[in-house]
Write a protein that binds this DNA or RNA. Structure first.
Lengths: 214, 214, 214, 214
DNA sequence: CATGAATGAGAGTTCATTCAT
DNA sequence: GATGAATGAACTCTCATTCAT
């Protein structure tokens, strides 16, 4: 992306450039994966560029050839993961009869994705603040994005009578918080097997029906 | 402190010793407050002893005269605040007719305390993991303590018919998460005025009645 | 070193890699020599990493690139020198007719080596104790090793009738002390020219024949 | 010595001053003793002013009221000990029939003194160099003094036929070295009981008769 | 005289980033 | 492109000394 413009690629499609391009992409991926596992194991701060390049089998200089900085790699991991998370969420038609089942499916897919990528998920959720100015800002933005999505869904749902009318900003934040916290707990502390289904169902039941005895 | 016996202190209660003692306490408080705001602004890692001493208007040596280490100050802030938080919570008799009102009062007091000490609250809630072994452990312990308390309350409440039976571990974690997240939002991002009452009421209403339309 | 396999090194024996390798070795030597002279001038404690890097014309980071710590450099100097010293000593067959001449040769070689490396010798002999646990232990070990060697030689010599029977532990220690002290004097205080031959001969004569008039 | 001149003492011998003076002397001694044991236990460098004042039960300021600096205390200990050592040596008339016995007595007294004050002796002997500029210089001076004394004795003895003619400078240094080294060994490493008599006798025998079989 | 709070220069070490080869 | 040697600012912490009280 950085040094080889698309124009160049089109210009000399004689094989050489293509192969070099492929090499570039592979190298980038190698470093990215190495960084992921290092960050996941040690957290953002305790993970050093040294750890990453050793895990990737790449020289120091090469690292900086493919990534601007330590925080840039982290940012990219963040973005990629966030994208996959977003992609797992399917828009639910509130008027459909199985609307709630579909919401539950969404939640299950999200939880499943997080559990599958537990290491990265843990890093993303626990490395809350103070890592690096750029990283902090991006995390903030991601959060804002998620919250906005949820706010929209709540208001939409309220309009269609699926949920009752609430302070949607506040409730959205609360829902995110409850998901994050239960997942952190589930991912990091407990024994490694997480019942994705139960977790999702319990959360949904709680938020749907509340704690008051029926 | 070492060579000033209690006798001596009593002997010369003519101002000298007393004033010195007061100065010590004030100095300590100055540093502690400076540390609080620095930690709140930058997070544990990005905050350096240098920042703290400059904010406190104190020399490097003085800092280490009053605190053993950077992590020691942080730990002290943590412990002190956690204690005040705990003290704000009153045990509620589940069979009392005004039980829910008292729970709401508890929640309001906690939220109020957090809002009043927004800087410290931010530190407490947002500080990432992987900072320092001691700090990590203490944060973990605090969290475990809070969760255990809530789990106890939920199970007690379920036994008395105040709340329905749920997976109390999971629900406790979810509740903590929702409180944490809404408070982080309220404290840091939004305009400085937080409606303590509304926040507490909304949270309680959400968790009590859920989102399903009545 | 880590990612440069031997194959690679062989592959491009066209100068590049070789020159880099040589540069590394030279740099290491530069730092080591700088450290040697700094340690010699100021002693272990008064010598700081700062002094060393300034003397070597090298940055702080570079120092730690080549050596693990301040004590590591010192230890390396110690070990290297001790090895050369040991290598200078030839085992003497006590039954040979020129045994004493060979002992004298040994002594001369040792003294010569010390005089040639006066800076290092000074470090080795004068450095005080209580500097650093690791350093202390190593110095102790070296000393013990030398003493043991001498004790063995004395007992062996006594068995073959070359020397008379004495408290070999005590005498070995005394011999070492006399060598150390005369060398410290010779190396550091006096004018720079030391008569290696005379020093060795005088010492040997003293210890062989004693002070009593013949 | 420092703040109360003799003139003052004579001026107002009304009791007050005298008592104050006595207090001063006692305090000074207290600190000095504390320093001695601290230095002995930890060596010059590892011993801090903090250790000393705590051992003496005296405040930081008071320490600096009686001694100019950390090194000043050490210097004073050094001087005092050196003085006692010198006082233990009796001038031997080389023409007396029991001259050698008297030399042995001297050696025994010196060794005995060192053994009695093993802690301090060890510090003095092992803290060779690089402690502090002032301390280094003083140690050098002390050494030079001892050596000069011994050189004089050797030359005197040679003139009277008590010992044979040797390079007295070199031999004096060698003798000092052998005494120092054996004492360090005896004082620090070995089990606590040192046979003063044997040590002195062995040393003297070695230096008198040498190692050559009779 | 006595105190001990305050100082700040200096210690060793780390690590993200640069750049000559 | 790729390398890894080199950099230096920044970090936490120590301790001999000063000085207001």
């Amino acid at each position: 992306m950085a040094h080889t413009t698309i124009a160049e690629k089109v210009d000399r499609r004689d094989g050489r450039v293509i192969r070099a391009e492929r090499r570039r992409i592979e190298r980038r991926a190698t470093i990215l994966h190495a960084a992921e596992s290092v960050f996941a194991q040690r957290g953002y701060h305790a993970a050093s560029v040294d750890h990453v390049i050793k895990a990737a089998g790449v020289s120091r200089g090469t690292f900086y050839l493919y990534f601007e900085s330590k925080s840039a790699v982290f940012l990219e991991l963040l973005d990629g993961f966030s994208f996959r998370l977003m992609s797992a969420i399917e828009v639910v038609d509130a008027s459909a009869p199985d609307a709630w089942i579909r919401v539950l499916s969404n939640l299950q897919r999200v939880v499943g994705l997080l559990v599958e990528n537990r290491a990265l998920a843990a890093v993303l959720f626990r490395s809350a603040v103070g890592l690096d100015e750029t990283v902090d800002q991006r995390l903030e933005r991601l959060h804002a994005h998620w919250r906005k999505m949820l706010v929209g869904a709540l208001e939409n749902g309220a309009a269609r009578g699926m949920v009752r009318a609430v302070n949607s900003e506040l409730v959205a934040t609360a829902l995110i918080g409850s998901i994050k916290e239960t997942l952190i707990e589930a991912l990091i502390k407990a024994d490694k097997t997480v019942h994705v289904g139960e977790l999702a169902r319990t959360l949904m039941d709680l938020h749907l029906s509340g704690l008051r005895p029926r």
